[in-house]
């Protein structure tokens, strides 16, 4: 009876946790090779060749990876600096609540807000006009839908910094870094040594999986680059959805090629990341 119940549970787990992902992946794979699809006629590697030779997907991948890496590096550095400099102040009642507020802002709202502030007719442009720095809206620099993805990076940073700040403050407390620092100082360590050999290694060792996870999340971010991005190159998810939703049905398979490459890359990253995490947990 117990065994039967366990089998049913596992079957249900596979049905809701594994089957949808497997079905989505297999469907995308079959579509990318022309085996399924409205206008496809049979197995072909033509779509894969087109995607690989055109280079647009890989350009988009590199562009997304660069934006995600830059945003994560700046966010983690800022959050670390704030944690190490202001941890006592941020522990006080008012500030300890205030720093949670940004978590209530979803990506779509953050992108909307950035657009309101940084677009050519946005709030900062109006201020620049009032100060006489610009004579017309078009003279305001391109900060959204721009080539350098400044709007996207700023929004990513504003969304990610609060998360890492709260995370690092908790690690600082839970790992008793204050006590460790005092102990090393009493043993003769200089402030610089305490920072580079105690505080930073402990915090980063404890949170590196989440840092890498955030890089992967930003790599596949959709709403923010959809509102603040440009036509070309586009970030990965925006490019994939654009390809999948286009009117030219013969091109949809190329969208599925992109989706398959992205899914395989992210899945391999997940396997490496979590098997490594498991090993570290065992060693600890």
């Amino acid at each position: 009876m117990k065994r039967k119940r366990s089998t049913i549970s596992i079957a249900f787990f596979i049905l809701v946790g594994v089957v949808p992902f497997a079905a989505a992946f297999i469907y995308a794979l079959l579509y990318s090779f022309g085996i399924v699809g409205v206008v496809n006629t049979g197995f072909t590697t033509q779509f894969w060749e087109t995607v690989i030779t055109s280079g647009e997907f890989f350009k988009s991948f590199a562009y997304s990876a660069l934006i995600a890496a830059l945003s994560v590096i700046i966010s983690v550095s800022t959050a670390l600096w704030l944690t190490l400099k202001f941890r006592k102040e941020l522990d006080k009642k008012f500030l300890s609540y205030i720093i949670y507020l940004p978590l209530a802002i979803p990506g779509v709202v953050a992108a909307f807000f950035t657009y309101q502030l940084l677009s050519k007719s946005g709030f900062f442009s109006r201020i620049a006009y009032q100060f006489g720095w610009i004579q017309e809206a078009r003279f305001f620099p391109d900060l959204v839908n721009d080539q350098m993805a400044i709007g996207i990076i700023i929004t990513f940073i504003t969304v990610v910094v609060p998360f890492f700040l709260l995370l690092f403050l908790n690690v600082y407390k839970n790992e008793r870094i204050q006590e460790l620092s005092e102990l090393s100082a009493s043993l003769g360590a200089k402030p610089n040594q305490v920072l580079w050999r105690i505080s930073l290694p402990v915090i980063l060792h404890k949170t590196w999986v989440l840092i890498v996870l955030y890089f992967i999340f930003l790599l596949g971010a959709y709403e923010i680059p959809l509102i603040l991005g440009q036509e070309s190159p586009q970030m990965l998810s925006v490019l994939i959805i654009r390809e999948l939703k286009q009117y030219d049905l013969s091109k949809i398979s190329e969208g599925y090629v992109a989706a398959v490459i992205y899914t395989v890359t992210v899945s391999v990253a997940a396997v490496i990341l979590f098997s490594k995490r498991k090993r570290i947990a065992h060693e600890a």
């Binding site: 787990f13 946790g17 594994v18 949808p20 992902f21 079905a23 989505a24 992946f25 469907y27 995308a28 996870l213 992967i216 999340f217 596949g220 971010a221 959709y222 990965l236 998810s237 994939i240 959805i241 999948l244 939703k245 969208g255 599925y256 989706a259 992205y262 899914t263 992210v266 899945s267 990253a269 997940a270 396997v271 979590f274 098997s275 498991k278």
Partner: peptide, 26 residues
């Protein structure tokens, strides 16, 4: 346990919009 947990990470880590687009047929 570890294999099953790893399997749950795949849909968690994938961009929901891409996941949804591949599932829309079903």
């Amino acid at each position: 346990k570890h294999t099953l947990t790893l399997l749950t990470y795949f849909p968690y880590i994938l961009a929901p919009v891409v996941f949804g687009a591949c599932l829309s047929y079903f």
